[in-house]
């Protein structure tokens, strides 16, 4: 029994139907714990005060914004190489979620940055990269919208995703080169030099787990409705409509 068996739309549909409530439930639980703990049971930062608490939304959403694109890249490659429809549809379903995550990261970042840096927006490499990532997401979404034939759309968007990934990485380096910014380093470094104290760290992990599961659940949901649409199209086609 191989994992690829679940690339069959019908099997995937059955399996995802069973997984979805668990993913959604777990996500809700993690988010509730993480956000409640983070917002109400952590001390204020000595320098940043209570504004630091936006970290429980800002960091997970930023993380998912990038991971969603990465997942789309992998799914696009699988579609181009192995032609599994579920893969292409999952990439399609992930895109709007990733877009919203990017938007959340940008907005919460602005809200956080205003009291900290005294400005809503700085041409900092991280911020700028996210803005560019947002543009890539929008382009990808519009591409899906514009092509009528679903398989052709899947092919075109997959190539766009791959080329876009290369250019996204290039842009990241270019922007870094262009301006060394004032954004703090990664909030969750795995090396010894933790920038974030444990008190903040533990609820943050819950929030991140919640966002990951939320993404997973939303992608499952989106893929399922895409499969439903394709099934409806297939039924229409069989009847010669």
């Amino acid at each position: 029994m191989s994992l690829w068996e679940y690339a069959n739309p019908v099997k995937f549909f059955a399996l995802s139907g069973r997984l979805l409530p668990w993913a959604a439930g777990l996500s809700a639980a993690c988010l509730l714990i993480g956000l409640y703990w983070g917002f109400f049971h952590t001390p204020d930062d000595y320098r940043m005060g209570s504004t630091v608490k936006i970290i429980y939304i800002h960091v997970p959403s930023a993380l998912m914004a990038i991971n969603a694109w990465f997942m789309m890249l992998v799914a696009s490659l699988i579609w181009l190489i192995r032609r599994h429809h579920v893969s292409a549809l999952a990439a399609k379903a992930a895109a709007p979620v990733g877009t919203v995550m990017t938007l959340i990261a940008l907005i919460t970042g602005a809200i956080w940055g205003q009291p900290m840096w005294g400005t809503w927006w700085a041409w900092d490499p991280r911020l700028t990269s996210f803005l560019i990532l947002f543009l890539f997401y929008i382009g990808y979404l519009i591409m899906w919208q514009s092509v009528e034939n679903p398989d052709k759309a899947a092919d075109l968007t997959s190539v766009l995703c791959i080329v876009g990934s290369v250019f996204a990485v290039l842009s990241r380096y270019a922007v870094n080169f262009w301006n060394q910014g004032l954004h703090q380093g990664a909030s969750l470094s795995l090396d010894k030099e933790k920038n974030v104290a444990d008190v903040f760290y533990q609820p943050l992990l819950f929030a991140i787990a919640g966002f990951v599961l939320l993404f997973f659940a939303l992608v499952l949901l989106g893929t399922r409705s895409e499969i439903r649409l394709r099934r409806a199209a297939a039924v229409r086609m069989r009847r010669g409509i």
Binding site: G164, S171, Y173, V175
Partner: peptide, 15 residues
């Protein structure tokens, strides 16, 4: 659509 797709790709070259 072309300009929406291509302009972000121009970023590294422009920089």
């Amino acid at each position: 659509l072309l300009s929406v797709l291509v302009l972000p790709l121009y970023v590294p070259t422009l920089i």
